[in-house]
Design a protein around this nucleic acid. Structure first.
Length: 303
DNA sequence: GGGGATACCTGAACGC
DNA sequence: TGCGTTCAGGTATCCC
């Protein structure tokens, strides 16, 4: 399932497309997953000036394509892959894979006609077309916290300083004194980009039980947790993300970071440190994997 | 207002 | 073999 490292891997792949790539056409294969309430894309495609695919930027798990016309940003396409969404570039089309919902026809000087298609088995993901003005009021993005990898907030050009990001992280955490730390790491208004896999791994690295409460953690523990996020994400990006079932990058290749995971999807296997059996519990409806010996619980006595 | 539960959705895995 | 059930999880929404 695409979290920050997987979306970043896809973004880097898509940005290898030329910034002069012309968006020639758009086709909806299904009625799902694509929302353009003002027909910005269709109307622009009918215009006399070509549309170019400028670049892809990322905020948390959102991927944003900047579409230019006459050197100006005409509109943006905001993608979210949720659980099983895929954005894949292909040169040839014989039959679109099952669950393909829409595709863009692209062209550039160095490459003949090629395609960027969106496929999503569960139809949780999708894309929405917005103008530069509309995106500033797009609540899904405006409410996001700073990005866990770049420390950038949406619509800002420069990232937060690391010390400011840490202060922001701590402030966002302490607003929820009664919520398990695992749930807070998944909360995109606390820190943007983490999902179930990397939240479990981070808590294992920091030896914190997922049910622990922030109010019982020291500043040193929160700092250590914060400073372990970027190295983990960097490592995962280096492995092109984690693939358990559906995730592939923009060329259809799987990631390999699943081979490095210490606890996620390893329940009933031995902990790599103490050999105790990894446990799995449900927290806020999500499976959480942890070592009951290595990861200490900080909070009121559990029933 | 905070926090938990649920809906959305399909395919894989599992049990009978 | 075939059918029904459960599980997977990011986000929006509902409810207590």
């Amino acid at each position: 399932m695409p979290e920050l490292p997987e979306v970043e891997t896809i973004r880097r792949g898509l940005n290898k497309l030329s910034s002069q790539t012309v968006l020639k056409d758009f086709t909806k294969v299904s009625p799902y997953c694509f929302h353009d309430s003002e027909n910005l894309l269709a109307n622009s495609l009918n215009g006399s000036e070509p549309l170019t695919l400028s670049q892809f930027v990322r905020q948390g798990k959102y991927l944003i394509a900047e579409i230019k016309q006459c050197e100006q940003i005409a509109f943006l396409i905001i993608f979210h892959l949720r659980m099983t969404g895929k954005l894949i570039v292909t040169d040839t089309v014989i039959d679109w894979p099952k669950h393909t919902h829409f595709y863009f026809t692209l062209e550039d000087k160095a490459r003949a006609t090629h395609y960027l298609y969106f496929n999503d088995i569960r139809r949780f993901g999708g894309a929405v077309v917005l103008t530069k003005e509309q995106i500033k009021a797009y609540s899904s993005l405006t409410k996001l916290a700073f990005d866990a990898y770049t420390y950038k907030l949406a619509y800002t050009s420069s990232p937060l300083k690391e010390s400011d990001a840490l202060a922001c992280f701590q402030n966002n955490l302490v607003k929820h004194p009664k919520t398990p730390i695992k749930s807070l790491l998944l909360d995109q208004t606390v820190i943007a980009g983490l999902g179930n896999i990397y939240a479990d791994e981070l808590l294992f690295i920091n030896q914190i039980h997922p049910l622990s409460l922030v109010s019982y953690l020291s500043f040193e523990q929160i700092s250590k947790l914060f400073y372990s996020i970027k190295p983990l994400l960097t490592q995962a990006i280096g492995h092109h993300g984690t693939t358990f079932s559906d995730y592939v990058d923009s060329l259809g290749h799987k990631g390999t970071f699943q081979l490095e995971l210490k606890v996620y999807k390893r329940s009933k296997q031995a902990c790599s440190i103490c050999q105790t059996e990894i446990c799995k519990i449900k927290i806020a409806g999500r499976s959480s994997h942890f070592c009951p010996k290595c990861q200490a619980y900080y909070g009121p006595k559990l029933n």
